[in-house]
């Protein structure tokens, strides 16, 4: 176990439990990621973040967000997320993780600065490595 992980705590938001199971496995396997937790709805994710902002839960460093979800989709989650305290959220990176290769979704992603990246499923070890390379290595250097 390494003491210093580039990503200490990862939050997975996807309505599919199977995907969450798979993604947890992939993330856990990767050396650069420490802890991982998954929620199966955007609402639950918001609740978790509110708790985290109050110190009731662990604050995540990275969020993998699915777009197509029932009740509240990814975009609606972003709107609610923006309402949170920026002091709390500024250190959190959000990456869209979706099966969608719909260019409209990609265009919309480009308009939102707060989103770090747009990744197509399935998640894989190589993808995570690339992600660390592009989003975290620079900081550490």
């Amino acid at each position: 176990m390494q003491i210093n992980f580039p990503v200490d705590f990862t939050l997975l938001i996807d309505d599919d439990k199977v995907i969450n199971f798979y993604n947890e496995k992939i993330v856990n396997k990767h050396d650069d990621f420490n802890q991982v937790i998954s929620v199966n709805s955007a609402l639950k994710a918001l609740k978790y973040l509110e708790d985290a902002s109050k110190g009731l839960a662990i604050k995540p460093n990275l969020i993998f967000l699915d777009i197509n979800m029932p009740a509240m989709n990814g975009w609606e989650f972003i709107e609610e997320y923006n309402k949170l305290d920026t002091d709390f959220t500024s250190s959190i990176k959000i990456i869209l993780l979706t099966t969608s290769n719909n260019p409209d979704d990609y265009k919309r992603f480009k308009t939102i600065d707060l989103l770090e990246d747009f990744i197509n499923k399935p998640l894989s070890a190589s993808l995570l490595t690339n992600l660390i390379e592009s989003h975290y290595k620079q900081k550490t250097v």
Partner: peptide, 21 residues
């Protein structure tokens, strides 16, 4: 088509991912 492909793709992706695991 989009939704179908999306919704069809997701379980497929999961399947391939799980098979890989």
């Amino acid at each position: 088509a989009y939704i179908a492909s999306h919704d069809l793709k997701e379980p497929l992706i999961t399947i391939t991912g799980l098979i890989d695991l």
